[in-house]
Every structure is written in structure tokens, then in C-alpha cells.
Simulated assay, not measured.
Amino acid sequence: MAVHSHNHARTHDGIDWSSQLNARRRADELDAEAHRVVARRLVRTLPDNPTVLDVGCGTGGMSVALVEALSARGGGTVVLVDAVPEMLDAATGSARSAASYETDTTRATVRIRPVLADLATERPAEIAGAAQLVWASNVVHHLPDQRAAVSGLVEAVAPGGWLALAEGGLSGKFLPFDLGVGEPGLQDRLLTARAQWFVRMRENITDAVRMHGGWNVALADAGLVDVTAFSYLIDHPAPAKQAVRDWAVDHLKWYGEAAGDLMHPADRRTVRQLLDPQDPAFLGLRDDVFMLLANTVYLGRKQ
């Protein structure tokens, strides 16, 4: 695959995703167990040898879980779609490693098909064909017209198949209330800044269309039936392993870069302290850092 310069990796939301490769991989590792449970739940009702589409696959955390879930029930095809070459390469490598794993009893075959595509301009049905399950996690909200994007995903679902849209939930918390530096309650102010950042991110997308109402309504309006939802927790309590502390550092760094100008100068100073490996308050060495978040998955069936 050709090497793309960083500026090509910016998507409609203006985010340079390729620079977040390592951070995303660390998050995948911490999400892995929760993803396995969700993947097993989603593939349970699918027909034999199904095609599953992972749209906006990122570094492949859920791709791997889907591959493992399909392997356990006899095989299938997983199509990986992403707009960022570096992400797609990472996901493809991880998914192919998972596809070749064997248990004592079975040697399932799961085919992996990577597709580099921009969902704002390309239709999933045309690039990937019909799938019995389409999984799209936190990708639709980065696209200009979210309802049109949902319709595009529905188009790629085979009759009787499912769309699983992971959007919303509860933003991740990772800091104790009083860190001993700065004003108490930094976590809540970070979440406020993130919400403001999100509104600004949407407003800055060219041709952005506001989406009113909830995701269940969007799925029903797109023609799906039996629309339901469930949420799953990612919970790594303190004292946490080093991977959680590294994730917290990544996460706070993202806040500082993306939403820093939306924070009070005093909070910006605190964030700098928490990110400084030479500072006694450095997050990467704290025993009271944790990871707690909830993701919601909206499900709908195509008749």
C-alpha cells in the first residue's frame, strides 16, 4: 500500500487520525474483553458463514472480536472499511492474525477483506456488497449528514440482516475528584469542554447537517424494524495496570490538544502538570487513575 502523508489522513472532521494510531491500539487492548462479549452477542443469530461489515474499523479492536466470534461458529467473512490507510493496515494485520487462530476442535476459516473508502462520498453497499451484520462504532457522528450515513449503512444490510450502530453512551471517566493539584472536579469540566468541542467539530464539517433526536429514531426512520439498544461497560478500576495509566495519559493529552482552548487557563495548567513525567502528579504513575465508560449499541433489522 502506498505511503500517505499525514495531511491525507485528515478526514471530514479535521482530525489527524493517523497520529492517534498507538493510542487507539492501547484503547483496543483495554476494550478487548468487552468487545468479545458484544461480538458474540451480535453474531449469535446470524446464518451460517455470514458476511460482517466493520465500518470505520479504526485499528481493528472490534474487527478482531468479530473474527474470533465467527471462527467459533464455523467461519465467515469480515470486511474492514476505513478512510485512513494507517488505521486500515493496522486493523487488517490484527484481524488476519486472529483469523488464523485455531481451537482444539475447530479450524474455522474467516476471510478478511480490507477496503479503503470514505463513507461521506462512497456507499457501503457498492464497496462491500450485502452483509448479514453491519457494525459501525463512533463513525457516523464524524460524517457530514448523519441520517444519510445511516441510510447508506442500512443499504448495505442484506434482507433479514442487522445494523449495529455504536453511538453515545457515557463519556469515559478516569480521574479522582480531587487530584491534589488544581481545582477539584477537573473530570467534570473536561467532559463539559469535550461536549463543546464536539459541537464545534460538527459545525466545522463542510456541509454538516444537524441530526435531531436519538439514534433509535434514526434507525427506525431508515426503515429498520425491531429497533432496540443495549449498553456495555468498560471498567478497569483503580489501582489499574500500566496500560490503563497509559490510556489515561493519551486521553488527557487528547483533551489538551482538542479542547484545550475551551478550558479555563488554570485547568490547562493542571493538565500540563498531569502530563509531565517529571511532575509528582504525573498521571502515568498514579495509583488512583481508572477507566470507566459505557458504550450504547443501537440494533435494527432489515425486513
Rank of each mutant, 00 (worst) to 15 (best):
H236D: 03
A98T: 04
G300Q: 07
L292H: 14
R189Q: 09
L252H: 09
E257I: 09
S137T: 01
A99T: 06
A195Y: 04
Q132K: 09
G152L: 00
I112V: 15
A69K: 03
P47V: 06
H12M: 04
G182P: 09
V199Y: 06
T92N: 07
H264E: 14
L66N: 02
D287M: 00
T270L: 01
A193H: 09
R36F: 00
L293H: 15
G180A: 08
L66F: 07
R40N: 08
F174H: 12
D267R: 04
L21K: 07
H141Y: 15
L292R: 13
G260K: 07
Q242G: 04
R194H: 14
A195I: 06
E203S: 14
A266V: 11
V244L: 04
L143V: 06
S171H: 13
V38H: 08
H35I: 00
A193Q: 11
R111N: 11
A83P: 07
G214N: 10
T206V: 13
D221A: 14
V199E: 14
L274W: 05
L21C: 06
L233G: 12
P176S: 07
V297Q: 04
L179A: 08
P124V: 08
D178L: 03
D54A: 02
A166D: 06
A95M: 07
G284Q: 03
L224K: 09
A193D: 09
H8D: 11
A91K: 09
S97E: 14
P85T: 02
R245N: 13
T192S: 11
E155M: 00
A148S: 12
N295C: 05
A158I: 03
R24D: 05
A148E: 14
I112Q: 05
V271F: 02
G161F: 02
G161S: 06
D54P: 10
G172D: 06
R41T: 11
N216E: 15
E257A: 13
V84T: 15
H212T: 10
L190T: 04
L179Q: 07
P144H: 03
A195K: 12
E203T: 10
T51M: 10
A164T: 02
R200P: 01
H8I: 00
A218P: 10
L165E: 06
T206P: 11
L165M: 08
K302C: 01
R111S: 14
A99P: 10
V67W: 10
H35K: 08
